[in-house]
Simulated assay, not measured.
Amino acid sequence: MPKPIVDVAIAILLHHGKVLAGWREATQHQGNKHEFPGGKVEAGETPEQACRREVFEEVGIGIKEWHPFDLICHEYDDVIVNLHIFQAAVPASLLDLIQQPWTWYQRDQLLVLNFPKANRAMLQRLYWPHQIKISANLADCAHLSDEQLMYWRTDLQPIYAMAELEQCTEGQLSRLIVPHALWLSLKPEQQKAVFAVHLSQRQLMGLRKGQLTVGIRHLAACHDDVSIQHAQQIGCDAIFLSPVFATPTHPEAKGLGWTAFAQWASIADLPVFALGGVKPQDLAIAQQHFAYGVAGIRQF
């Protein structure tokens, strides 16, 4: 007998780097587990409408602007669930309206909470390691620590870049960030395997809401508050904010310094990576100034 198929809308609510999660009661399906806001898509409504309704009913806040985050199909012993996932930032003006027992968690904390199995792919996408190495040498991805990703900043023609990527293991690809132009030329299986796609600020500002590929992480380069806000408006996953300090590779670029960096990073609800003249040992001070992580070339 075919298993029933249920369409469910799930909300990823963000505020200053944290994610909202609650607790599923024992009497519910997959009970005694943590959960994100959401519920079944009712007849006559779209998944996004269901997401907006469920958040209003369960969390107590109304949010208009949503971004498609992912679509995940998971088969349980008794049912097949299609998870239609959306993300949205929660403005400070709505924080006091959030009902109990919803709680804000750091992304690291989500990994140790007891979520249903269907949420695993969602949790993996939400989590980012705290260091990003930038290199033109693809072989460097074989020497990353457990807490590092690598952005392959390559100028190779796509045909040569693809040939190099063929030599990478699946594990190496899963730690790799590639330029947007290169990602577009990759095979579908390679596109899904890499960790994220990098957007220059120029590419970022040329995109509009609805143009990002759903289910793929996007890391945007930002150099001012306008680009930070735009990255959030179109549904990016994380941000490079640079330069914190002047660097040998860009001596003409004036560094922000930690004070100005903090002013801009504090407006972001996405993970912000401090880039430009920083090193791995600066992670603690970067996080004191609203960064999620650090990124660099020589020092990494």
Score class of each variant (00 low, 15 high):
residue 264 W to L: 15
residue 191 Q to V: 01
residue 275 L to C: 02
residue 296 G to Y: 09
residue 83 L to W: 14
residue 43 A to T: 14
residue 121 A to G: 09
residue 282 D to H: 14
residue 147 E to D: 15
residue 216 I to R: 14
residue 76 Y to K: 11
residue 198 H to R: 00
residue 178 V to E: 00
residue 197 V to E: 09
residue 173 L to M: 12
residue 278 V to M: 03
residue 133 K to L: 10
residue 221 A to S: 15
residue 153 R to M: 05
residue 84 H to F: 11
residue 191 Q to H: 02
residue 131 Q to K: 13
residue 76 Y to D: 13
residue 75 E to T: 15
residue 252 E to R: 10
residue 32 N to V: 01
residue 107 R to N: 03
residue 219 L to F: 06
residue 132 I to H: 03
residue 164 E to R: 05
residue 115 F to W: 06
residue 183 W to Y: 03
residue 229 Q to S: 14
residue 158 P to R: 02
residue 128 W to Q: 03
residue 14 L to I: 10
residue 160 Y to W: 14
residue 252 E to F: 04
residue 278 V to E: 07
residue 4 P to D: 12
residue 299 Q to H: 12
residue 5 I to A: 13
residue 64 K to H: 10
residue 30 Q to A: 13
residue 240 F to R: 05
residue 5 I to G: 13
residue 124 Q to W: 01
residue 26 A to G: 10
residue 282 D to S: 03
residue 114 N to A: 13
residue 111 L to S: 05
residue 129 P to H: 02
residue 193 A to G: 07
residue 68 P to C: 05
residue 77 D to N: 13
residue 10 I to R: 11
residue 131 Q to C: 07
residue 82 N to W: 13
residue 211 Q to D: 07
residue 100 Q to L: 11
residue 20 L to W: 08
residue 132 I to V: 10
residue 26 A to M: 06
residue 210 G to N: 05
residue 239 I to C: 08
residue 100 Q to G: 12
residue 51 C to M: 10
residue 261 F to E: 11
residue 259 T to Q: 10
residue 120 R to N: 10
residue 240 F to S: 06
residue 94 L to H: 08
residue 92 A to W: 02
residue 119 N to D: 15
residue 173 L to G: 05
residue 70 D to A: 11
residue 288 Q to T: 15
residue 179 P to I: 03
residue 121 A to W: 10
residue 20 L to H: 04
residue 100 Q to E: 13
residue 292 Y to D: 09
residue 141 C to G: 00
residue 40 K to I: 15
residue 173 L to P: 01
residue 232 Q to P: 02
residue 125 R to F: 08
residue 292 Y to A: 08
residue 81 V to L: 07
residue 137 N to Q: 07
residue 172 Q to D: 05
residue 131 Q to L: 10
residue 2 P to G: 09
residue 247 T to Q: 02
residue 244 V to L: 15
residue 218 H to E: 00
residue 219 L to S: 01
residue 164 E to P: 01
residue 265 A to S: 12
residue 14 L to D: 11
residue 134 I to T: 12
residue 184 L to M: 08
residue 31 G to Q: 05
residue 113 L to H: 00
residue 90 V to D: 08
residue 69 F to N: 11
residue 123 L to R: 06
residue 64 K to C: 00
residue 81 V to H: 06
residue 21 A to Q: 01
residue 73 C to E: 15
residue 123 L to V: 11
residue 267 I to E: 07
residue 215 G to H: 01
residue 117 K to T: 09
residue 227 S to Y: 05
residue 138 L to I: 14
residue 172 Q to E: 14
residue 234 I to F: 00
residue 191 Q to E: 06
residue 130 H to C: 02
residue 23 W to M: 13
residue 59 V to Q: 00
residue 245 F to E: 08
residue 71 L to G: 00
residue 119 N to M: 14
residue 140 D to T: 06
residue 283 L to H: 04
residue 300 F to M: 15
residue 254 K to F: 05
residue 40 K to P: 12
residue 248 P to R: 02
residue 100 Q to M: 05
residue 55 V to R: 04
residue 131 Q to V: 06
residue 148 Q to A: 13
residue 80 I to F: 09
residue 183 W to R: 02
residue 214 V to D: 04
residue 197 V to L: 02
residue 73 C to H: 15
residue 170 E to Y: 02
residue 96 D to E: 15
residue 85 I to C: 04
residue 293 G to L: 00
residue 258 W to L: 12
residue 42 E to Q: 14
residue 181 A to M: 03
residue 206 G to E: 14
residue 233 Q to F: 04
